[in-house]
């Protein structure tokens, strides 16, 4: 089942002579349950692509369909609600809300929807994340790995159609990195969670079903390594 379709996506920063083409006519599709690693040198447009897929940055031209919804045809409010329900974003620097505790950070997308999380579901999730005894902690009381796990929890809580991660292990030591990789892989396998991860970490890349290489805003390689 097709979960994501990208058509002729371009993103140009700046104007006139100083314009930089961050994405140049990119098209591809992603099936449900795929685990895609996006690799490429810095400045190649990986992050831009991810942000556009995540609905936080607007493309200059082209379309993004997530579960058949043209996300950039939505107005700002609907796009926000769409993000809340259909997209999970994970950043290198966790970007947790410092004033909310672990539980609130994880359930933030639900809270924004005015929902209460299902208790048993939440319990399962936090035990998978290994955060059961940290629910009341504030982000600054957690280690980097724990914070990243919280942000994974936040990304998965609403069962999003698409989970996007930008260098999720970029800021972590090797032990924490492998935990995070393991978690992502687990979510992908067990929940058939569609996952697109930008990474420089070859361990993640090797876990993926498909590796996409971006150079100068174009997809230069796209190979399925397992199916």
């Amino acid at each position: 089942m097709e979960i994501l379709r990208v058509e002729n996506l371009s993103k140009i920063y700046g104007k006139g002579e100083t314009a930089v083409k961050a994405l140049d006519n990119v098209s591809f599709t992603v099936q449900k349950g795929e685990f895609i690693a996006v690799v490429g040198p810095s400045g190649s447009g990986k992050s831009t692509l991810l942000h556009i897929l995540g609905g936080v940055d607007r493309p200059t031209s082209g379309k993004v369909y997530i579960e058949d919804t043209d996300i950039y045809s939505l107005d700002e409010t609907r796009l926000a609600i769409f993000r809340r329900r259909q997209i999970g974003l994970i950043y290198q620097f966790y970007n947790l809300i410092p004033v909310l505790n672990v539980k609130e950070n994880i359930t933030l997308p639900l809270l924004l929807d005015g929902r209460q999380p299902d208790k048993s579901q939440l319990d399962e999730l936090v035990s998978t994340l290994g955060l059961s005894d940290r629910l009341d902690y504030l982000p600054n009381q957690l280690s980097g790995g724990q914070q990243q796990r919280v942000s994974i929890g936040r990304a998965i809580i609403s069962n999003p159609a698409l989970m996007l991660a930008d260098e999720p292990t970029g800021n972590l030591d090797s032990k924490n990195s492998s935990e995070i990789i393991g978690l992502l892989r687990l979510l992908n396998q067990k929940r058939k969670q569609t996952l697109i991860v930008i990474t420089h970490d070859e361990r993640i890349a090797l876990q993926a079903d498909r590796i996409m290489t971006i150079e100068d805003g174009r997809i230069t390689r796209d190979e399925v390594i397992r199916s």
Binding site: V56, T77, A80, I81, F82, N95, L96, I97, L112
Partner: peptide, 10 residues
């Protein structure tokens, strides 16, 4: 920005 990206509407 974070709040917006997890889907906080304007």
């Amino acid at each position: 920005a974070m709040l917006k990206s997890v889907g906080m509407t304007p």
